[in-house]
Every structure is written in structure tokens, then in C-alpha cells.
Design a binder for these strands. Structure first.
Lengths: 116, 116
DNA sequence: ACATAGTACTACGTTTAGTATAGCATGGAT
DNA sequence: ATCCATGCTATACTAAACGTAGTACTATGT
């Protein structure tokens, strides 16, 4: 049954419950970044840059900053020699595994479908 | 030495299997459009516009066109009176339900967590 | 006949997001 | 001192999304 909304729709159009998530996921590179971090526990900036195949470093930088602010990615300065930075997923980020799994399934079924 | 790049790295960078899906999903409004169409079997242009809360009609138009080309959305001209257009999901689009379900779960767990 | 309203858009000009390319800062190694 | 690697930032450009307005069609009211 399609959700029919009576009279109060102007005031409170049924809020789309995925809107805040869509705001994060619906940005370029977010899903791919999470995908790679899920598979490798931690990665460096340049490593991500290589894997993502041609993302521009400004975009990657701001995307990682946003994901850190949202609590999805953790940034750690490693003071070893040579010092560097490692990015990994928080619990919140790791919990996106279900989303990634479903996206992968759908992608394999309908987009990369030739090898099903 | 960190990963030195011989000559064949272009050949064997593990391709990200969600890239084609991310290209579709990682565009503004796509997830919300699919969410609403999953819940209502078919919707009109203006109805989507209202529910999405302030999407610009050019963007909605091009997004629907893209989704139709990808095989996710079906567009039907209804020749009743008054004539209008109805948008609905194809089988490919309906199969995104698992993705939407996981996104909803994650969103409720971490973003809208206070309520529900 | 003419204006008004609903539906589904398109057109125009502006802002924001993302891009290509280059360069900077730090810390070894040579 | 010079070179390289890492992790970015800076600059200038293009593409995506935006707000607002308007068009084309049909129907309905005056």
C-alpha cells in the first residue's frame, strides 16, 4: 500500500529516513573508500589515492576529513620512521559492511553481470 | 622501500567491484528516489519533487533519465485524463531493496539513533 | 474567449563539488 | 646540500547541482 498522507503533509512530509545517510554515501568516492578500508584494516593516503584510481588529492583529503568528522573514519599519525598517517574505520564505519555487501551483490548481479 | 612501482601496476590494481554501482548510487538523490519508489509502486514527477524536499527539477529530470537508461526506473506515459507520467522501479531497481534496507538500518543505528 | 489551475518538464544564470596539475612541508638517506 | 617519499594544500578549470522562471499541454471555470 502506497503510503498516503492525509492533510498534514505540508508540515511534516514523512521524512526520508535515509536522508542523512544518503548525504554521506551519496558523495563521490565515499563507498569506494569504505570498501577498501573494510578490506585492509588501515591504509595510507597515497595508497587510497592509488586504489581509487585517479581521485584528486584535494577531493580525497576533504572526503576523509568529512568521514572523520562523521565518525566513520579514524585518522592516526604514526610517529614511526618514516612518520606517516593511517586511515581506518571506526565501529560506525565497520558497520557499513552490510551496505557494502548489498551493493556488491547488486553490482555483481546487474552491472558486472557477465560473470555471474 | 614502500611499494615501488614497476611497470605493470596499471595491469594488476585490484579493480574495485563496487565502482559501477558507486557511480550510480554516489549521485545526489538516487538513494532517496529509490527509497520512495520502493514504498509506493509508482510516483509522479511532482510527487517525487515534493517528497524529496526541494530538489531542483532539472536535477530530478536528469537523474530520472539516467536511472531509466541504467534500467533501474521505468517511465510510463499514462494517457488518461489528465494525462501524466508515472515512474516505477524495474526488477533491477526493486533489487536495490537490500541496499536500502542496510542503509536504513545503519542510518537508524548511528545517525537518527535517538528516535526508534 | 479568456483566465486559472495542474502536470511535467526545460531554460537561464549562479553556486558548489570535483578535477588536473603543480607545489609545499617534513623527515630521512646519500 | 640535494634527493626522494609521504601527505597533503594551492590554483585554476569543468561539471554537477541549485533557485527561479517559464513553456506546453489539457481541463475547467466565468
Amino acid at each position: 500500500m502506497p503510503l498516503s498522507k492525509p492533510m498534514q503533509d505540508a508540515l511534516e512530509l514523512p521524512i526520508c529516513p535515509i536522508e542523512p545517510a544518503a548525504h554521506i554515501i551519496g558523495q563521490k568516492w565515499t563507498l569506494q573508500i569504505v570498501y577498501f578500508l573494510l578490506n585492509s584494516s588501515s591504509m595510507r593516503f597515497c595508497e587510497l589515492q592509488d586504489r581509487l584510481g585517479g581521485v584528486n588529492p584535494s577531493t580525497l583529503s576533504s572526503r576523509l576529513k568529512m568521514l572523520e568528522e562523521e565518525g566513520i573514519v579514524r585518522r592516526e599519525q604514526i610517529s614511526a620512521i618514516p612518520p606517516h598517517v593511517e586511515y581506518s574505520l571506526t565501529a560506525m564505519g565497520r558497520d557499513l559492511e552490510g551496505v557494502i555487501r548489498e551493493v556488491t551483490r547488486w553490482s555483481n548481479a546487474w552491472l558486472c553481470g557477465s560473470t555471474k
